[in-house]
């Protein structure tokens, strides 16, 4: 195939891809393209779990080679080491689950526990994680996702047995917040894409000042659970007249070490009594 025809193919494929993008960008949820996505999740999800399992099994098989005593001891040693690591992992997961239950008790939330099984593989600019709970477990779009230490993000897509969560530092994420303990305050925290959130505080009653270390919790809305700890003020921006105050928030959750999280499937509409964010750790 020669030059001109190559360029025709290039233009055709680029146009086809861009047309798809435009069609898809106007969508709400639902629609044939969304069905296509869910179909691909349904096919790829089990395959991913299988590959994960196979990688583990391959490791075990390699560890099981050899015959004489030294090798046998080495093998036992390896198996025990693995077991210790496994137990340590279980213990850590248990601790996170315990914190989650504590949060649930404090706030009257109904929480579905889930594990993070994947980080977004094709998100050059975004940050999402995949959970191992989906619509079969009662998870719906827009639901709040928390961990024991605070807000993780919200559900953006749901398949039967997995769901995709947009992390709170993702630039497409924003949530209504208030300063913990100051009932009249209101602001919007949005992800800034650098592991932090940008806070725009619209209303702080009584001429109060926002200072470094202040904790912010979700204000609550139709879709968002109220009183979930979001983050702490790490830097106060210059006051912009008319637009309220700006600040930078550091999230309470450690996003690099997510394991067990909870999807709030039903929560109180008002702030729970004990919305005390955890102290700096």
């Amino acid at each position: 195939m020669r030059g001109p025809r190559l360029r025709t193919l290039l233009v055709l494929l680029v146009l086809a891809a861009f047309t798809l993008t435009l069609l898809d960008s106007g969508r709400g949820s639902g629609g044939p393209l969304d069905a296509l996505r869910r179909g691909s999740d349904a096919v790829f999800g089990p395959a991913q779990r299988a590959v994960g399992g196979a990688l583990g099994a391959a490791g075990d098989a390699l560890g099981g080679l050899g015959g004489d005593d030294e090798e046998r001891l080495q093998r036992e040693n390896d198996a025990l080491r693995r077991r210790v690591l496994e137990l340590e992992g279980t213990q850590a997961a248990g601790e996170q689950l315990r914190q989650l239950l504590q949060l649930k008790d404090q706030g009257d939330y109904t929480v579905v526990p889930a594990r993070v099984v994947g980080y977004g593989a094709f998100q050059p600019f975004g940050s999402t994680v995949t959970l191992d709970a989906g619509s079969d477990d009662g998870v719906r779009e827009d639901m709040t996702v928390t961990s024991g230490s605070g807000l993780v993000g919200k559900v953006v897509r749901v398949a039967a047995r997995t769901s995709t969560v947009s992390l709170l530092t993702d630039p497409v994420f924003s949530v209504g917040v208030r300063v913990n303990g100051q009932a009249g305050s209101f602001g919007i925290a949005s992800g800034s894409g650098r592991g932090e959130l940008a806070l725009q505080l619209v209303d702080l009653p009584g001429g109060g000042q926002l200072s470094v270390g202040d904790a912010l919790v979700t204000a609550g809305s139709d879709t968002f659970a109220a009183g979930v700890p979001v983050g702490r003020v790490s830097e106060v921006g210059a006051a912009v007249s008319g637009a309220g105050r700006t600040a930078t928030l550091t999230p309470f959750v450690e996003l690099g070490a997510l394991d067990v999280v909870g999807v709030v499937v039903d929560g109180p509409r008002t702030a729970p009594r004990a919305a005390v964010p955890p102290g700096p750790s």
């Binding site: 494929l13 680029v14 891809a17 861009f18 993008t21 435009l22 296509l36 094709f122 953006v156």
Partner: peptide, 26 residues
């Protein structure tokens, strides 16, 4: 290859379909 692989990768993401397909084709 870029078009097909890009579309499949797009299905595994939460941005608009076709964006990686376009990038891979180019």
């Amino acid at each position: 290859t870029g078009f097909v692989a890009g579309l499949l990768a797009d299905l595994q993401s939460d941005h608009e379909l076709g964006r990686l397909a376009l990038a891979y084709v180019v």
